[in-house]
Each structure stands twice: as structure tokens, then as C-alpha cells.
Design a protein around this nucleic acid. Sequence first.
DNA 1: GCTATTGTTCTGTTAAATAGAACTATGATT
DNA 2: AATCATAGTTCTATTTAACAGAACAATAGC
Lengths: 301, 301
Amino acid sequence: MDHLRHMAIFKHIVDNGSISAAADKLDLSKSVISHHLKSLEQALGVQLLHRTTRKQQLTPAGKDFYQRCNELGAISAIAWQQAREAADTLAGPLKISSPHALIDNIVTPAISTLCIDNPMIRPHIQVQDRRVDLLGQDIDLAVRVGKLTSSNLMQRKVGEFRDVLCASPVFINCHRAQINAKKFTELDYIANSWQGQKIQHQLQSKKPTKGQKNLIMQFNANRYADTSSAVLSLAKAGLGVALLPDFMFEQAQQQQQLVELISSHQCELNSVYAVHDFGREQPLLIKRTIDALITSFQARQ
Amino acid sequence: MDHLRHMAIFKHIVDNGSISAAADKLDLSKSVISHHLKSLEQALGVQLLHRTTRKQQLTPAGKDFYQRCNELGAISAIAWQQAREAADTLAGPLKISSPHALIDNIVTPAISTLCIDNPMIRPHIQVQDRRVDLLGQDIDLAVRVGKLTSSNLMQRKVGEFRDVLCASPVFINCHRAQINAKKFTELDYIANSWQGQKIQHQLQSKKPTKGQKNLIMQFNANRYADTSSAVLSLAKAGLGVALLPDFMFEQAQQQQQLVELISSHQCELNSVYAVHDFGREQPLLIKRTIDALITSFQARQ
DNA sequence: GCTATTGTTCTGTTAAATAGAACTATGATT
DNA sequence: AATCATAGTTCTATTTAACAGAACAATAGC
């Protein structure tokens, strides 16, 4: 499967009717073209082209060979065209991995909008909280909270959010004594399934100019749920304290379903990254997906 | 239609599952393979292969591109196989050009034998006495009397013959007076159509040791025929003197239909060449055709 | 955390591709 | 038949690309 170059040049010689014409077309000297043809014929052990200074005539073998070279050129052209189209066409499979916390409020709305605008996209949204192997699972784009430490993968920040420690108003009222006494370990705590029993949070003052120290809080988890929306529901039902992303908390707060546990302090900002393996020059589909995620993050504020 | 090399290497990478494996297979260093893949992806502007040290995963674009590379490899293989077959298969068109003088006794018997042994050969025997343009008329092999002075064409000697000045026994008897007196211009002369009216022959003594001089004879042609066999018939019929190839004369001589005009002298030997444009390494079909011509020449002696 | 293996990048080196000139062959023109 | 313009071939010098090997980085298994 070598000598493909020779075949391409042979095709040019036949197409253009002479070695000199092919040389002009290809911006090469005629000596090079002549040499290529000679090498090809020697390699094949067959004369392809009878030639004088004025005429050229394909041998039977040459006719067949030329036919194949044409097919070769056609396929090569198609291959390149398809590849280029793939680079800038909003279509085809799009497998996305997202953590539970972001799926309903951020990722799904973004992908929905993208796919409504471009119906040829075939999305596959996967929910995974742990760091995931993009290659092994054929994932095109992963949404992750926090930057990966070391990786060849490209990471683009798509937004940020803050976790909020909160509980239902009824729960707060019932346990005001413990809260004021900062006996947090005595409170019910709703955790995600993969978290342990011992939970610790570090909150900063919302007014950093006063130089107040960070507030370190410890909890004992005694309720668990796999998804953030389940945690949210339990918290609304007054089953305990929960750590929820601000975009979830805010909706519940407006309906007086949840309130902040400590209004003077807040968690650190979490940055959300889109992670992929398309290098610096991504296909348009990936770019647009990332754009949609950014838009989705901005829209909820 | 360039970068075909890159495509071939890309196919090897996918087929062998890794860059290192492809490098081993192709007897190249992995750095080269890596570089090729990088160049290809840069040229296409598309990532074809997600890769880590352990796994590799084709992108959608890569899948399509790989498919095309496979087709490319298949066509390339077919092209080469066909060309090689063409070089050593006794089949297909075989266009031969022969002068009238040789067609019935030499060329046709040779081609007949060849084609009976190899029925897939499709012969096309053309009769032309003038020097002919092989390329322009798509002639594969030309049989010619006498060597071409300057040409790129290959020439292989296939046999030789001697022209014989002869006439019918009756004719000789009727004109013995003029013959003995060497008044050849008074004799009837049967010429080929393309010859002029004035005919001159130069004969050598059959016994050169005696140092006899060449005999120069002049005739006036007054009968013409296109083909040698027609000339033969006219000569047998006693219509005049004719110059005929020895292989024609000998048959007629055995049946007492023709005798030599001058038994002491003879014409020069004519060499017969097979002329073609297949260079030093001819297809088997051409080689065998030439062999058949040689055999045919030997058989008639 | 360590190690084996893979892929990438860098270097100098080697082989191939190339251009340009000199040469040869051809076919048209006269 | 001789001349001439043009195409193809061959030669040599040069530039370019391909290449190997080492150093490095990243990954996955232990």
C-alpha cells in the first residue's frame, strides 16, 4: 500500500495528456514527473504508457491502472471532504457526562436548546459524579466541578456557583438552639450517597474586610440520596441540613421553602469546567456545546 | 489528492491498535508515526483519534476517515494485482503489424499456434508494408524487414530470409536468349504495387572465395500486384520474372513451378525484426509472440 | 507511590524529492 | 531531406522531507 504518490502523479499525467502538462499543473519540474512515472513502471514491472514527444498511449495494463487511480482520487477527495464537514457540521452523536448537581439546571437546558436549533445532533447525556474516563466511555464532553490537576485534556471554564448550607424554615425553627450554640453535629444532615458519615464544611465571612476567620463546621450525615434533586426534596421536607448549589437553593428560597443556615458566611465559589480531548482546535459541535453551557450558566443568574 | 501516505499510515495505526504497534509493523520508529498522525490531523483540521498511552478511540470523523482509508488500501491492492497480472498473463488484445511478404508463411502461422494454446488472446493482424506509427495505431508488435536506423523502440531479430529472382520454367525457356545475353530490361517483370517502374537488383556470387564481382541487374516492371502471394501466382503462371522470398520460392521450386533466373548468384540476406515499445522488460504476451515468430521462421527451413 | 509502557517532542542524520541544465527523440515545416 | 520547435530523459547539485534515537511526559496497573 505504498507508491500512492506515484499513482496520483500517474493520474495527472494521463489527465493532462503529457508529462510536461502534468508538471505545470502540479508545479513540479518535468524531470520529477518523468522520474515518478519511471519508478512506478519499474515497481510494477509493467509499461503503463507508450510515449513519444508528441503522443502518449495507455497500454492495456495502463488503462486498468488509470481507472484505479481515478477511484483512488475520488475516495481521497471524499475522505477529505467528509473530514472537513465533520469539523464544522452541527450533527452526529454528542455524548456528554455531567455531575448530578448540574444536570437539571445547567446541562440539560443547554443541550436542549442546542438540539432544538440543530436537530441532526444526537445527544446522549450521562450522569456521573466521579471523574470519568473520556476515552473508555467514548464521552465527547465532560462537565466537571473543579479543575483537573494534571491531564492532556483541554479544560474550559463554563461558569461558577456557590454551595449553600440550608434547611427548611420549619427545621431551622425547631433546631434554633443547636444552631445558635453551633452544635451542628446534633443536627440531621442530608448527604449525597458517595459522601461519608463525617461531613466538614469551611465557610468564609461574606464581608471579608472585617478580617473575620473562616468558620469550620462539622456534621454527621444521617440521610442520603443519590441525586441533588432528591437531596433538595428531602431538605424542603424539613428532614435536615443540606449543602445545595445556589441555583437550586435560590428557587426554593423565593418560595420560602429553604433558608440559609448561617447568613453571615458562605462557601467558596466552585468553578465548572468543560473537559474534552479535541485539543486546541475543536469541532464546531464541541465549541457550540461549550457555548451553550456558558449561556445556560449565565441565564440562571 | 496528496497526503495519501498519511492516510495509509493512519490506517495502520487503527488496524494495529496503537502507534507503537504500527511502527513495529511498518518498521519505522514510533516518532515518525506519531508525527505523521499529527500532520494529518493538522492538515484536516480534525482530530481523528483520541489517544492516551493505553487506549485509543476513533472520533466520529476518524471513523469515517478510516473507512475511506480502507477503501483506498483495497483499491491500491487491486490496482497492483491487476497490473502484475497484465504483465504475465497470456490474454487480451494483441495487435500485430506485418508486411505482406511475411504474413502468410511466417506471421499468421505463429499467431495461430499462440492463440490456439492461449484462447484468451484476442489477435488483430494488420498488413502494412510501410513503416508504421506504433503509438498512433495502437500496434503492440510490428514485424519489419531490416533494422530501423534510429528509434527508441525495441527491436529483436526473429529470423532471416533471402529474396530469389525467379520465373516459371516455361518463361525461362522462352527467354533464354535474353537471359544469357543479360538483356534483363527486355524481360517481363512482376513487381509489388509500391515499387516503381525501374527495378534494380544487386546479386552476389554464391561462391565468394573466387572474388567475383557483384552482379547488377536492371528490369522494367510491367506487371504489378499488391501482395506477395499475388506476385507468386503471376510468376507461376509465367507472366514474368519476380523477386520472391526464399520460403515462397522453395515450395514452388519443389513442384517445378519456379526456377532461379541466375543460379550462380543470390541476393543478400534480409533480417526480420520484431519491433515494439515495451522496453527491456516486456509483458509475457509480447515475449511469447516474439518466440512464436522465431519458431515460425525456424520451422519453415 | 512506583513502575512499565505508550505517546510526544527534540535532536542530528540520512534518504528522497526536486530543479535546472544538457541531451535525445519526434514530428511538423519547409 | 534538412531544419526547427517541443516533449521526454538523464544527469548533477541542492533542498526538503523522512527518519531514528534519546529525552521527556503521561497513563494505567501494581
